[in-house]
Design a protein around this nucleic acid. Structure first.
Length: 504
RNA sequence: CGGGGCGUAGCUCAGCCUGGUAGAGCGCUUGCUUUGGGAGCAAGAAGUCGUCAGUUCGAAUCUGGCCGCCCCGACCA
């Protein structure tokens, strides 16, 4: 049998359903018995581990250190910053008891009854500004204690109404950086540095071009003075916020009382920042690069960059072929790609070759190698690239392949970035009038990123969001967006375009 | 929390209207055949039909309560 595509439906037929099917076909994650909480399976978690490790290097390079803070946050901590409290109020899981009583039922079963009510409930962290702020308040006494540059890798919980694997789950994995500084300038510089780290990481590691920019007041993190975002476009032309970096001013320092004695011998409030990316990035990679045959993982972050498929048509040559594949894998693992040893897997399972081949296509491994008796005789390997069609196969002399394998991987990495950039640029359009704007986001139109002159209010933004389901994704950085014009809604003068889009 | 839909084998679902206590495809196991490709044939394992109660000689099927899930909104990384 031969399906036209490995995934049904195709992206064009039903993008949301395609996404669900792809996650399943690639065996990356599944819904668990706990509502909104996913099980991240080894192939998905392997991708997260690579993202985590590579980002962690960048955090260390920019001077940060890792630490760990409690999962449970006293309810009163959340009450200290009014905007923050309101922002997260509707999505908090609350712990109210600290023990259970096992009650034997007449039918022999046991019921567990919560007892031991807590004097003060705990909230399972939706984010850790408040509890880390409390720690910072203890740690900071003098300007000499600053800056504090801390990062935490952890899970957080936000009781979402409508969960979706990776994109929006009740529990998710992330990192949250929290820093405290002596001056506003320094804190703003930190916010921008980390914003840039995210932008570079998305482009260079995940092969996703993002629009970096600032959020409007309406879209800002609850309690922040400024929120910076990196916005990616995925293949249904919607925007996805892939990472954020917040300048918190002195709001959280005030709430948590992070004070220090300054150079002028006066007590001052610190200026803080926070910044984070989550497992949502995995969903972004899937939606940005995947095709109708499954996921395509950029080589730099792929759990396995190369999978070797032994071709064993005859039982008597099987051992020889497998030995040759293992030897090839060992040789490859001595090489490095982007500073890390090549991650090579030999799939020795006793399954039909075609079935295995398709499995790895759906998982999105960047490069598949086939080696059988004929290849051993010819001293060649068959090379299949995931950025090309499932049938595309190139027979290459083994020695040549060993010489240029990393260049080939880089070509795949570059091809994915080029493809994603082309998609974004083709669907990003300067628009001048409200009529065109409405047409751009009409039900039956493609949509995309609309670059608009904007000088409207938060209320105007609200109205547009309700009527057309579009939001201002960001006020983008960069000269190409700066130009004189008039707001398409209010007609007021504007010196800059903003990005409107539908979003995840 | 509003508006729709659905809970039957690991997965996708049929059966329900017109009660007589279970079916298909895929997957899984075994055997034979096949083998540069998601293969074929055969045999087999696997479900107290979400749950509790009611009606009935008899309930997957009818009635009611409860629980859970999915989709569309509002909320969000």
């Amino acid at each position: 049998m031969s399906n036209a595509t490995a995934i049904t439906p195709t992206r064009a037929q039903d993008f949301p359903e395609w996404y669900q099917q792809v996650v399943r076909a690639a065996d990356m994650a599944e819904n668990s018995e706990v509502r909104g909480c996913m099980v991240i399976k080894p192939w998905g978690y392997g991708l997260w581990e690579n993202i985590q490790r590579q980002l962690d290097v960048k955090f260390k390079e920019t001077g940060h250190v890792n630490a760990y803070f409690p999962l449970l946050i006293p309810l009163s901590y959340l009450e200290k910053e009014a905007q923050h409290a309101e922002g997260f109020a509707t999505e908090c899981a609350v712990v109210t008891h600290h023990r259970l009583e096992a009650q034997k039922q007449p039918d022999g079963t046991v019921k567990m009854i919560p007892t031991g009510e807590l004097a003060e409930p705990f909230v399972i962290r939706p984010t850790s500004e408040t509890i880390i702020g409390a720690a910072f308040a203890r740690w900071v006494e003098s300007y000499r204690d600053l800056p504090l540059l801390i990062n935490q890798w952890c899970n957080v919980m936000r009781w979402e109404m409508r969960p979706r694997l990776f994109l929006r789950t009740a529990e998710f994995l992330w990192q949250e950086g929290h820093t405290a500084h002596e001056t506003a300038e320094e804190a703003i510089a930190e916010t921008r540095t980390m914003h840039k780290v995210y932008e570079d990481f998305m482009r260079d590691h995940l092969a996703i071009p993002v629009i970096p920019g600032e959020k409007t007041e309406r879209e800002r993190f609850p309690g922040a003075v400024q929120t910076f975002t990196v916005e990616a476009m995925v293949q249904d032309k919607k925007a996805i916020q892939a990472g954020t970096s917040h300048y918190l001013g002195q709001n959280f320092a005030k709430a948590a009382n992070i004070q220090f004695l300054g150079r002028d011998n006066t007590r001052q409030l610190a200026h803080t920042t926070s910044w984070g990316v989550s497992t949502r990035m995995i969903g972004t990679v899937i939606m940005a690069h995947g095709d109708d045959d499954g996921v395509i993982i950029p080589p730099r972050v792929a759990p396995n960059q190369i999978v070797i498929l032994p071709v064993t048509p005859k039982a008597d040559t099987r051992d020889e072929v497998i030995a040759a594949c293992e030897a090839l894998a060992q040789t490859l693992r001595l090489q490095t790609f982007a500073g890390e040893p090549l991650r090579v897997h030999v799939d020795k399972r006793d399954l039909q070759g075609g079935a295995k081949n398709w499995e790895w296509i759906k998982k999105g491994v960047p490069m598949r190698l086939e080696m059988g008796p004929r290849d051993i005789a010819n001293r060649s390997v068959a090379v299949c690239r995931r950025d090309q069609g499932p049938k595309a196969k190139e027979f290459v002399p083994k020695e040549d392949f060993l010489q240029n394998v990393t260049e080939r991987l880089q070509e795949i990495q570059d091809a994915l970035l080029a493809r994603a950039t082309a998609l974004r640029d083709a669907n990003m359009k300067k628009i001048e009038t409200l009529e065109e704007f409405k047409a751009f986001f009409a039900e039956d139109s493609e949509g995309g990123f609309a670059l608009m002159h904007w000088a409207g209010s938060s209320d105007d933004e609200d109205t547009l969001s309700k009527d057309l389901k579009v939001t201002i994704r960001c006020i983008p950085h960069g000269d190409q967006f700066a130009e004189e014009g008039k707001c398409f809604l209010t007609g007021k003068p504007s010196s800059h375009r903003v990005v409107f889009a539908r979003s995840y």
